[in-house]
Design a protein around this nucleic acid. Structure first.
Lengths: 115, 115
DNA sequence: TACTTTGCTACGTTTTTCGTAGCAAGCAAA
DNA sequence: TTTGCTTGCTACGAAAAACGTAGCAAAGTA
């Protein structure tokens, strides 16, 4: 594994790999969680551990390869870890989730309004 | 393969174009804002109107084409609008930002910890 | 032992994003 | 009026990311 000849794949957390050059913390965070499935993964881990397959189902159309990439990224960033019975949020991950949670209720109203 | 002469480009809000099949509101929202630059744009509009160029600078490496796409998406979703002096948050956009704001302080601590 | 589930990797194909290069419109001197 | 600047965007080829599917080793189950 870790074939360096073809894929860079997993970005290092803390360094703005790609994205905002400013280096502002919020932008570093956005660069990490502002990707497909990242927030969905965190959201789905919030109420208990989930296996890879669980997450695949809950994240609808995420292919196993991207899902795997996202999981590695989030793990490298210290937001999730590999528990015995699947993936789980770390303390940091839970803290982040707490800040994400209010989006849930708001999204309901917003989607409602759009229809 | 549909029409080749024009780009689909702008997804319709409210319909999970690509992404989560579940249709859960939060996933619809994540599908919109969980893309490169989306949250950064909202963040940068929070403290006043910004021109296209302003946003380009603040969003570091966003190319004008993606930036334009993101702006169209957010506008279609009713989160931003085209004011006389640049782009601005709508009422909904401001409401969303309020829920995003706590991430800023947390990100500072988090990035600090990572170093 | 054989079968199933799980967690992933490989890999070829689409989609997205990037990185320029324009270009029309507005403005502001000259 | 012409010239030159800035702004908001579009075009387009190239690179990177995401997709979809196949497949495989390990662990669990019958």
């Amino acid at each position: 594994m870790a074939d360096k000849s073809s894929k860079p794949d997993v970005p290092q957390p803390g360094k703005p790999v790609r994205g905002s050059k400013t280096g502002q913390p919020i932008m570093v965070l956005f660069d990490l969680i502002g990707r497909r499935w990242s927030m969905g993964i965190l959201w789905n881990l919030s109420d208990g551990n989930r296996t890879f397959r669980d997450l695949q189902e809950r994240c609808g159309s995420a292919s196993p390869s991207v899902l795997n990439t996202r999981l590695k990224e989030l793990r490298a960033a210290g937001l999730i870890y590999n528990a015995e019975n699947g993936y789980a949020l770390t303390e940091d991950g839970r803290e982040l989730f707490v800040r994400l949670e209010p989006l849930g209720d708001w999204a309901m109203d917003w989607v409602e309004k759009l229809r």
